[in-house]
Design a protein around this nucleic acid. Structure first.
Lengths: 246, 246
DNA sequence: CGGGGTTTATGACTATCAGGCGAAAACCTC
DNA sequence: GAGGTTTTCGCCTGATAGTCATAAACCCCG
């Protein structure tokens, strides 16, 4: 098949799928970039990705292209971000690009190709095309979702202590959160659960930390939103407002 | 220019921009659809939109195509939703489609072409392609954003009473909210402000309602999120924790 | 022109939950 | 076993959403 029924009224465009892959490494949030050897933007750093092929969806495409950089199994999460269509975004000719957000748990350290490396998101090298602003979009999305979903599961190892999880959240959010509050909030929302086991206490001693895990290893919205919730589901539909009579 | 440097390794695809245009009409949320006269999906209802042209962005494209249906000036808001790329989404051949969310304030009643009509989102007619699920995505997005942004401005007339605004929120959210709470929350967040004037009281009398307006007629996030906020910005950077001493 | 009816506005109260602090628990090393 | 370290837990505080009752402001009608 391929690109059927293209015509002057229905122009067609090369489409690329790009991935903003994020991972917390040594307490800092990093993004995976590769260095362009050729013009345009020779020497600048770009997001992994490439052309959308004839029979694949964008999601499949980004996964396929990522496989050229890392094993796909390391990906904890992948979701569509946004599509950029500025006719001038590539000086060689028009392309449309759809960016995805990918997350890799912190306990993995996949091997990368020669031209590819991790860069701290708060100190990016010169970036190619509009990829810098795509990283920014991904960051915003991740930070927002850390609060009202369980995306954290895609940044964390299968089991972890609260202190370790806190490090991940601090790195990803870019500001401090307390372990106490993090634990209570995530537990109450049913996002986290204790495994029952505990980690070995560190070299300096200290009370051994309880191990936790994310209850569901897939994206779920925990608290839809703070305001204008649907009226609270009546627990047993009876005897509200006890002091009410006549 | 057009689609330069397309090749077997860089296939190109017709791309369309679609709009999910929503409006509250007589207390119900509606979506604008047009009835397809021809196959495929003859007789089914589709989202307005069409091909992305050579020199326009997706945003410009959706606005242009919408202009064939309604005056663009009625649009209170327009934002990108998501891009669908399933190779089988159009039986005639592969296309990629990017959906946008459009909002029209309730006080406007733009004239529509013959083939186009409003349909309540909770009772959609048979829809074409994957447009039904796109409407669903738009709904989810709108409902979420009503809580943590000021999108309401794009559903409401320039000035309104709290009771009127409540009707809009109830229709858009699909569940009941109280006028008291709506007013207090939106006022405290600085989303709403009283104009100082008041509406004429209705035929049955009653205290005349104060008129309100949205402070900023453009999208703004009001409360980033409920949990894991950055540490509260210190009002004057002094004398925290008064009971604290060495 | 005053009472009944209607609609809106406002203040009080409650419940929930995030955020912070400090004490206690549990472990290590020396 | 004493001192140091890290985690856990309970208590307190503040902010804010949600509910309710009352007061305010207007109409119409007799």
């Amino acid at each position: 098949m391929g690109s059927v029924w293209s015509s002057p009224e229905r122009p067609a465009y090369p489409h690329q799928a790009l991935a903003v892959v994020l991972q917390v490494r040594v307490r800092r949030l990093h993004v995976m970039l590769w260095e362009r050897p050729n013009e345009p933007f020779a020497g600048a750093w770009a997001l992994p990705g490439g052309p959308l092929l004839a029979e694949e969806t964008l999601g499949a495409s980004v996964a396929r292209q990522l496989a050229a950089k890392v094993e796909v199994e390391v990906l904890g999460h992948l979701e569509q971000l946004e599509t950029r269509s500025d006719p001038g975004r590539d000086p060689r000719g028009r392309t449309v690009a759809t960016a995805y957000l990918g997350l890799i748990p912190a306990h993995l350290d996949p091997a990368l190709p020669e031209d590819t490396a991790w860069h701290p998101v708060d100190a990016l090298p010169p970036t190619a095309f509009d990829h810098g602003s795509m990283v920014r979009s991904a960051l915003d999305r991740l930070r927002a979702k850390l609060s009202y979903t369980n995306v954290g599961f895609a940044l964390a190892p299968p089991e972890f202590t609260i202190a370790e999880l806190r490090e991940l959240y601090v790195a990803a959010l870019g500001y401090d959160v307390t372990a106490t509050n993090l634990q209570r909030v995530l537990l109450r929302r049913g996002v986290l659960e204790p495994t029952g086991e505990q980690a070995a206490s560190g070299r300096a001693g200290g009370r051994p930390a309880a191990l936790h895990r994310f209850v569901t290893p897939e994206l779920a919205v925990t608290d839809p939103f703070a305001v204008f919730r649907p009226p609270s589901r009546d627990p047993d539909g009876q005897s509200r407002s006890p002091g009410y009579e006549g």
